[in-house]
């Protein structure tokens, strides 16, 4: 349910910062209404195989696949607005984060629709794959868009610029690399975990004991710890920059140019 918020943020900020209208008003309307129609129904895909009536699950699966419509429509709209202005996106802290989030929205949503298919869900359900997917959604797309929005709002609210481009760089690289590492590690580790959990030999006996599948997830969880460390570094850089911005003397930062990132 974080989608509607970030839709607002991305639809507002991408055209605003680039100074160019959104690719297609009509597509955004289609995206909005198809999202409203299907998204509420899609939630039950978390209960596939669970103790709920089968028709509920089927409806949830259908809605999850129908989510491809708003996702593709929104993807076209966002990415077409940006096409040809990649340099500007890369130089603006706001857009660098927001476009990263928008790209991940497309990826995480298409993956999510796939995960609602029963045959895929049989492997991914109850594993770290789903955990990775959740972080893909809430961090790589939602949180990154919120970071981008804060980079836009703060200078306008405080009437002063971001004090340090270096700290923005640090924030960006630590968070972008960190979350990508987490998502990739949990997806691969979770997929292996799911396959090993379900593997049966000819006699219908599990090939791996449960504790074996647990031990085999440990290296992937170590990778996740490292990714958490990277995210923490990024958050510290962001915190320092915000702190510095709020508490520095106004004169020092008043009539400067906007803080942009080198190409």
């Amino acid at each position: 349910m974080v989608d509607p918020h970030r839709f607002g943020a991305a639809y507002y900020l991408i055209p605003k910062v680039l100074g160019r209208p959104i690719h297609s008003y009509y597509l955004s309307v289609v995206g909005f209404w198809s999202l409203a129609l299907f998204y509420n129904w899609a939630g039950v895909h978390h209960l596939i195989g669970g103790p709920v009536p089968v028709w509920v699950i089927s409806a949830g699966t259908v809605a999850s696949v129908m989510m491809v419509i708003p996702v593709v429509v929104t993807a076209v709209n966002h990415h077409m607005t940006v096409v040809g202005m990649q340099r500007e996106v890369w130089r603006s802290p706001t857009l660098r984060f927001i476009v990263f989030g928008a790209i991940n929205y497309t990826a995480v949503s298409l993956l999510g629709s796939t995960m609602a298919l029963r045959s895929v869900n049989e492997v991914t359900h109850f594993t770290h794959f789903t955990v990775g997917h959740a972080h893909h959604g809430v961090y790589a797309f939602f949180t990154m868009i919120m970071f981008g929005s804060v980079y836009y709002m703060m200078p306008r609210l405080l009437k002063r610029e971001w004090p340090s481009a270096f700290l923005i760089h640090t924030h960006w690289w630590a968070c972008a690399l960190g979350i990508m590492l987490m998502v990739v590690a949990l997806h691969i580790g979770g997929w292996i975990q799911g396959l090993q959990m379900n593997a049966l030999d000819e006699d219908g006996v599990p090939v791996f004991t449960f504790i074996e599948t647990v031990r085999n997830t440990v290296p992937w969880l170590h990778a996740r710890s490292i990714s958490g460390l990277l995210l923490m570094i990024g958050h510290m850089a962001f915190f320092l920059n915000v702190f510095w911005m709020i508490f520095s003397k106004p004169a020092a930062v008043s009539d400067s140019k906007p803080t942009l990132l080198g190409a």
Binding site: M197, N198, V205
Partner: peptide, 14 residues
């Protein structure tokens, strides 16, 4: 705390 049916995952076999 939910067991899936036999043939969907390995809950039964485990």
């Amino acid at each position: 705390q939910q067991v899936r049916r036999q043939g969907f995952g390995s809950d039964f076999e485990r």
